[in-house]
Design a binder for these strands. Structure first.
Length: 697
DNA sequence: ATTAGGG
DNA sequence: CCCTAAT
């Protein structure tokens, strides 16, 4: 038997750092658990949910905090820690790295870029000293030393959108994905998970179950799908195709009914064929790619630069660096989906003569008017619906109108699930995470703008018209990352059969929700052909509403390729997380069909099974299936047969030897009784036919 | 497609 | 749960 130990990683609401630190962030903010059960299935599913999240001033990045507190098991540390220390040592220099919240990002380069606002020759020293030391990158961290503030500040600043009226230019600053400093505490992050074993054990399962939920909800599915996670409970529920499901019934009760579907039926989530090459992450484009991009982009030119001297000085350096990295950059560009490249091109308008490779590389402080330790950053010309963009040249960014200056401090990635073999390398882990992020970010994102909770759909409106530029509304402006209208990217996904577009965020599941007894009506009077009704919306219904024009739940749907009429962003939600769910390709093994997710039988299921077998006997598993598990798509008759087998075994061993959720002894007794009875029946049958055969012989 | 059984 | 052989 092949032992397949795997690691399940769950990420909640972490923010992707701007650099190859994606992998590290995994370690930092993930809740992950290790399954000791050698039967554990592996799914290298990766759910990456990206939220374009711009919290308003004063809004507490609570979820980010919480997610950061998630601790990781020592297991990962064991396998990862070493390399982490070596390879990422620089990254642990928080003073120069993590705390560089002031580093700004072009929105279009969220994945890879950590441009440096102030690039000066003297910063080379810093580059070398600071442990980041990416030789060619030219990343400087001058502002690090000067702007490293208290972690609290950083966190508080996190996810904020700073908006103000500026004269010189439109300047959208995005510091990109990053990790709140106080969350990144190695000490803290390395703490082992403290979830109790039961809860831990259920974690991945429940998540997956819920993530790939389907319509048929079975009452007896409740129990195993237990997840207690205060953080998760804050999550906006999402279903397949990134479509936010809204609150599930009973949400408030902390009892989640997990809609489960068999993997095969959850086509949206799992269908292997539909998501494929188009979105296949490039092999061997690990964090290296990040570095390349870092190298190529580190120097941003802010069109509205006023300091010409400085600009020129920087330009020289940039020329060199640009040349040096031009090839790499171009190559990297190929790796980026069209959508992303398009954005690249947009941002390079200001420097068309240099083409994509330059795209405004040298970053010059935008007038240094960023307040409160929020450093200057690169501009993002195309990001603001400025109706009057002049053509070409830096001049294009100078308008006479009042300029709205925005700073997008980060976009949040609320959910990211990874399941990776235990023996996978850290590098592969990094790649996986990177791929997930790239898949999301590069897979055709677009930006949504929210103002006072309402999505602004009209791209032609001016900021003035929409009121964005009004001070009194600055607190209500938000951006979201949305899946591109183009269908391809996210839906297409590699050979992961289970793919598990882990489609919704893990619901807060009560650990031991009341398990409705299937035999509550008294033994076999219960019509097992009628599956227990599940309160709430069936997934089928949901699917339908997801496909037709019926009012869809708030949030985005990757299936929509069409109009914007479909709310792609959970606008009504206070927490305006726009999630993009992306499954990640698994390692090589993903070529072959993936092992199904393990879904332990609940007591209720066992009861149903026992009851059916009592009536039908063993050997009629198809009938058992139809009778008691007809609606449980994920339970095949083989599963039922297997379960019965294990039940018999369980019933025969001592309670101490039993694992998993304890099955009531009463049920086990019935198992033995039924098994004995039907074995006897079989024997009788054989005895009946035996004489004939012996006679024939 | 089912059933049975080993892994 | 997976895989396979045998129905």
């Amino acid at each position: 038997m092949a032992l397949q130990k795997r690691l399940d990683y769950g990420f909640n609401g972490y923010q992707v750092p701007p650099t190859p630190r994606a992998a590290r962030s995994v370690r930092r903010r993930c809740v992950f658990k290790r399954k000791a059960d050698d039967q554990q299935m592996c799914a290298f599913d990766l759910l990456a949910t990206v939220a374009g999240k711009l919290l308003l001033d004063g809004e507490s990045p609570a979820s980010a905090h919480a997610s950061c507190r998630k601790e990781q098991p020592a297991a990962l540390e064991d396998s990862v820690g070493k390399e982490e220390k070596d390879e990422n040592k620089p990254l642990e220099e928080k003073s120069c790295d993590q705390n560089c919240y002031e580093r700004n990002f072009l929105f279009t380069e969220l994945v890879s870029e950590a441009p440096k606002p102030n690039f000066r020759p003297d910063e080379l020293v810093c580059t070398q000293n600071d442990v980041i030391s990416r030789p060619a990158s030219g990343i400087t961290t001058s502002d690090c030393s000067e702007k490293v503030g208290p972690a609290e500040q950083l966190v508080n600043d996190d996810c904020k959108l700073r908006l103000g009226i500026f004269t010189p230019s439109v300047d959208v600053e995005s510091s990109g994905f990053r990790v709140p400093a106080n969350c990144g505490s190695e000490d803290e992050s390395r703490k082992p998970i403290k979830m109790d074993s039961a809860s831990t054990r259920n974690f991945s399962i429940s998540n997956k179950a819920s993530l790939c939920s389907s319509g048929h909800s079975e009452a007896w599915d409740r129990k195993p799908s237990v997840l207690v996670s205060p953080v998760d409970s804050l999550k906006f529920p999402f279903c397949r195709d990134n479509t936010p499901c809204g609150s599930f019934p009973g949400n408030q009760d902390n009892v989640k009914l997990v809609n489960r579907d068999d993997d095969e039926n959850s086509s949206e989530c799992n269908e292997p064929g539909t998501r494929n090459k188009a979105f296949k992450p490039q092999p061997r484009v690990g964090d290296r790619r990040f570095r390349k991009l870092l190298a190529s982009k580190h120097c941003k030119i802010t069109p509205n630069v006023k300091d010409d001297e400085r600009y020129n000085a920087d330009t020289e350096r940039c020329d060199y660096l640009n040349r040096k990295n031009n090839i790499k950059r171009q190559r990297s560009m190929r790796d980026y989906p069209f959508k992303k490249r398009k954005l690249y091109d947009c941002s390079s308008v200001s420097n068309s003569e240099e083409g994509v490779s330059s795209d405004g590389i040298c970053t010059v402080p935008a007038n240094g008017t960023n307040g409160g330790g929020l450093g200057p950053g690169p501009t993002l010309p195309g990001a603001i619906p400025n109706p009057t963009p002049a053509a070409g040249g830096n001049a294009s960014f100078h308008t006479r109108n009042s300029q709205v200056k925005l700073k997008i401090k980060s976009f949040r990635v609320p959910e990211l699930y990874i399941e990776i073999p235990e023996n996978a390398t850290v590098g592969s882990l990094k790649r996986t995470v990177l791929e997930a992020v790239n898949a999301v970010l590069g897979g055709g994102l677009r930006v949504g703008v929210l103002l006072q909770g309402k999505k602004i759909r009209d791209d032609n409106k001016t900021l003035l018209q929409t009121g964005i530029s009004q001070d009194n509304k600055m607190d209500t402006l938000g951006f979201t990352l949305e899946p591109s209208p183009t269908p391809a990217p996210i839906r297409l996904y590699p050979e992961d059969r289970r793919g598990q577009l882990l489609c919704d965020s893990p619901q807060p599941l009560a650990r031991y929700p009341p398990t409705p007894s299937i035999t509550q009506n008294g033994g076999q009077q219960r019509n097992l052909d009628t599956p227990p009704d599940l309160p709430g919306t069936s997934f089928n219904n949901f699917i339908e509403s997801d496909h037709d024009s019926a009012p869809s739940p708030p949030g985005m749907s990757l299936q929509r390729t069409t109009s914007e009429s479909k709310a792609l962003v959970p606008v009504p939600s206070t927490k305006q997380d726009a999630l993009a769910v992306v499954p990640l390709r698994k390692s090589k093994r993903s070529e072959s069909a993936q092992r199904r997710i393990r879904r332990p039988f609940t007591v209720a299921e066992v009861e149903a099974l026992v009851q059916a077998v009592e009536k039908l006997g063993t050997g009629r598993w198809r009938d058992v299936k139809l009778r008691a598990f007809d609606s449980a798509k994920h339970r095949t008759y083989v599963d039922l047969k297997d379960k019965w087998k294990t039940l018999v075994h369980t019933a025969r061993i001592s309670p101490q030897q039993r694992r998993g959720e304890p099955v009531p002894q009463e049920l086990l007794d019935r198992v033995l009784t039924a098994h004995a009875y039907w074995s006897q029946q079989q024997a009788k049958q054989q005895l009946k036919s035996q004489p004939d055969t012996s006679l024939l012989l």
